[in-house]
Design a protein around this nucleic acid. Structure first.
Lengths: 333, 333
DNA sequence: CTCGGTGACTGAACCGGTTCAGTGCGTGAA
DNA sequence: TTCACGCACTGAACCGGTTCAGTCACCGAG
């Protein structure tokens, strides 16, 4: 170790000095730190990780939504930004991987664990009967789930009460006079999709709506557009559509325009996840706004504490708030 | 090493067997591989990296565009997908980091190099007088540049002839009868912005346009919208706008609609980077289409070969092609 | 039968940190 | 004066691979 030589001490002393541990005098510590600074030296991460009890200093995220939707789906990059902001302070890096399906995702986790590539992972898009939490139990790979609660197999999770937001949307649309509302949802096997569906049906019944259905798509613009086209072509089309993400809502708006259906006078549109997209298009999209960046920070913080050996409680984030904009309004003949 | 014990050989033999190197008999190799498979064993990455000449098995990418535009900018996620697809085959991971500015980006490279976090990096968004290539020369961190050619300080690069695409756009718009075209460009200090500007002015002169200006924005939807609003409010507004990315084009389309300017009968709009967004909105956006995913694959492959010690030549990608859609057409009174 | 050569495998050094059991020294109390 | 104690620091083991110099058995040629 060249720092040790330069300072004329043993490498053990250097280790103590740099990690702020007792065992060296304050003057020696300062001398070592100053030399390290001059040399632009920093401890080798592989060596550190290799030492008994050493950590790799990186966490992983795998995304397995359809690759073509990934590019535009604002959700993930915002989440990643939030996660990184939190990790950067702790000197931890983020490994990102895209996978084709949940099987490939599990293979990535297994490889990461076997090769000691990461210290822990954040699991997103929790499914019904999700195989991942159980696999994590076997894998010695600490994990935090974004989603739930429930079905997390004992893993700590960060969740939102999506039902409350759904109820707010239904009340709002009902108050505007809408009686036929269809929800264009995400994949059926996502846990939060099921939560929202349940809340939607209950709120619709309570509001005495004439029609309140949920149809499933896959978050891509293509699917959102196709589904909207089918819905608007019906004999008695819905007068309001609620989408599970903003990309599908955007596609729906495009299809409405293409079919000559006026928004909002003939059709109201509500999006979930209020990214900048919603504000850029005309009419601007009414949306349920969540602090996705903040979610990333919180979930990264939870994982950090989990890695430090602390006990981590499940945590709930504030309910997403309805942002009324130009795409919703009363029906006008 | 538990595999060695299980197979009754030394750990050296295990190393030879697993890396396909000579020094073990074929029968022993198969026995070791089968035991490793049964145990779900894989070599520890930190240990491997620590060995003399060892590689970390990860490459890094830092993105320092404004954080708020990152979420929706489809370009990066597509690029990342492409990079990963190429790397996955080689068992290499990707570290992603967002930075506030180019200084923070350099700090990340320095840390990665000092701590041996990655084997190499991909540099994106090359600037005029970019400090990064020079810094890389000092840093012992192999790098490949996406952009250029020129100003890459000797680093291998993957570049596109943006000028050709610009000329195609100008000819196309001129043929439609447009005489006043304004280009809403990205930041002035990006190398490719300058390349496009130069080609734009030349093509405009050759086409004998009445007005052909370039104004600069920062790729965000907000800036794109604001700039468009200002341009359309002029006494003699342009009849065609060419945007340097699709997000600003989308914002421009929104502003036009808000101001009652009809697209394409009163205003034509062309976007750069043809993501799904361009096909989702109405009218759909005419765009210059590039295979960003493919760019990612190629640049990752170049970095891979560079890390293997091979000499890597600069490489040019196919020119982006104009995809005419509903947002462009002749002026109709 | 002997000798040289080759293939299969072992043992140990090495990478660059962390950590723990000592070691030596100075100090204050008995 | 002596002894126990605490502090600053050293030396060596350790993490889990890779790699190189040997060792050994076996085989074919002379």
């Amino acid at each position: 170790m060249d720092i040790a030589k330069a300072a004329g001490v043993s490498k053990g002393a250097v280790s103590y000095a740099l990690n702020g541990r007792p065992g060296v005098s304050e003057t020696t510590r300062e001398r070592i730190l100053s030399i390290a600074g001059d040399l632009g030296w920093a401890p080798s991460n592989p060596a550190r990780a290799l030492a008994p009890g050493g950590r790799v200093g990186a966490i992983g995220m795998v995304v397995d939504r359809p690759a073509r939707s990934l590019g535009i789906e604002p959700f993930f990059m915002q989440l990643v930004s939030g996660v990184e902001t939190e990790l950067a302070a702790a000197g931890i890096d983020l490994m990102l991987q895209v996978a084709e399906d949940i099987g490939a995702e599990l293979a990535v986790y297994r490889r990461w664990a076997a090769e000691r590539r990461v210290d822990g992972v954040v699991i997103v898009d929790l499914r019904v009967d999700d195989p991942r939490p159980e696999a994590m139990g076997v894998l010695p790979l600490p994990a935090v789930v974004l989603g739930g609660p429930g079905d997390t197999g004992g893993l700590p999770c960060l969740y939102t009460d999506d039902g409350a937001s759904v109820r707010e949307v239904v009340h709002y649309l009902a108050a505007l006079g809408h009686r036929r509302i269809v929800r264009v949802a995400g994949p059926e096997d996502f846990v939060h999709t099921g939560d929202r569906t349940l809340a939607f049906q209950q709120a619709a019944r309570r509001a005495g709506l004439e029609e309140a259905r949920t149809v499933h798509a896959d978050y891509t613009g293509e699917a959102g557009g196709r589904t909207t086209r089918r819905l608007l072509a019906a004999a008695e089309p819905p007068t309001a559509l609620v989408y599970d993400n903003d990309l599908m809502a955007l596609a729906g708006l495009g299809v409405a325009s293409e079919m000559g259906v006026k928004v909002p006078s003939q059709l109201s549109i509500v999006a979930w996840d209020d990214s900048a997209l919603c504000r850029l298009v005309r009419p601007s999209l009414t949306a349920i706004s969540r602090d996705v960046f903040g979610h990333g920070r919180i979930v990264a913080g939870m994982l950090n504490r989990l890695l430090a050996g602390e006990h981590v409680e499940d945590r709930e984030t504030p309910v997403g708030e309805l942002q009324p904009r130009g795409s919703t309004g009363p029906l006008t003949p």
